[in-house]
């Protein structure tokens, strides 16, 4: 279960070449994982296309977060395969290697570095060489300063750039974490409940931001809020008891009797 036994693969965070020649960026095939006999993920298969925006919904305990844990290397599945592009076997990489390969994650509970300032949080997240010596010698170039400034603007935290992150509100932390995700410049973004704690206006902004990312990036959004999902106007995957229950447009999903019975007990 521990990711500690995985082979650490040292990759520079800079230029990444990902073989997506078949148009698929993430293959998950027959994944199963159980905790103490409880099957959190049960024979789950999921394919995300290059540049796609996908919503994953499902009731509590459907395995959404565990799914993200597997993709980002936090949890190792008992069975199944997970490939990033054509060539990268995610099950053989640890968290850092996966992040460097180009998968970024925003957590359900926003996790930022509270003792650092907003700008410093972004600086740490910024794509670049991650090995200790280069981090030690790293200095912000003018270009990088501009990137941080523009990201601050994008997430609306310009005024707070030198504040400790501990002083931010829940919604501001969400934004900061999204900002960190942007700084990472990942190929695939896993976004876990980004709308929690946001006003309707902020939610709309987040939706716009995520939609604008799609195309260059692939985005997987896990969300509870149906209005937010609707605003994204993207294909939806429904998870139930650790496997995929249905896939399709939101309207199609909502009229699916199987989904209705799971959600509404009909």
């Amino acid at each position: 279960m521990s990711a500690a036994n995985r082979r650490p693969v040292s990759r520079s965070g800079g230029e990444r070449s990902l073989d997506t020649s078949h148009g698929t960026v993430l293959y998950l095939e027959g994944l199963s994982v159980s905790f103490d006999g409880f099957k959190a993920i049960n024979d789950l298969s999921l394919y995300i296309n290059d540049g796609e925006l996908r919503c994953v919904i499902g009731p509590n305990g459907a395995g959404k977060t565990t799914l993200m844990d597997i993709v980002t290397g936090k949890t190792r599945p008992d069975e199944g395969e997970a490939w990033f592009g054509q060539t990268l076997d995610l099950l053989r990489l640890d968290e850092a290697a996966i992040a460097n390969a180009g998968i970024g994650r925003k957590f359900q509970q926003p996790t930022v570095f509270t003792e650092l300032t907003v700008a410093e949080n972004l600086e740490l997240a910024m794509a670049g060489n991650r090995n200790v010596l280069s981090v030690l010698r790293a200095k912000l170039s003018g270009e990088q300063r501009d990137l941080i400034a523009s990201t601050l603007e994008r997430i609306g935290l310009v005024a707070l750039r030198d504040m400790n992150a501990s002083t931010l509100s829940h919604g501001q932390k969400q934004w900061l974490e999204i900002g960190m995700l942007l700084m990472q410049q990942p190929r695939l973004l896993l976004v876990d409940e980004p709308a929690t704690g946001m006003t309707h206006q902020e939610m709309a902004q987040t939706g716009e931001l995520l939609c604008s990312l799609a195309g260059d990036h692939s985005v997987v959004v896990v969300e509870h809020d149906m209005d937010f999902v609707r605003s994204l106007d993207s294909p939806v995957t429904v998870l139930h008891q650790g496997s995929v229950l249905a896939e399709g447009s939101l309207d199609a999903i909502q009229s699916d009797p199987l989904v209705r019975s799971v959600y509404l007990g009909e």
Binding site: M1, S2, A4, F35, D36, T66, K74, T75
Partner: peptide, 14 residues
């Protein structure tokens, strides 16, 4: 085995 012979398991354990 950082969590001993009989580690507590579960999603929260890690």
């Amino acid at each position: 085995r950082p969590r001993g012979l009989f580690p507590p398991s579960g999603r929260s354990a890690g």
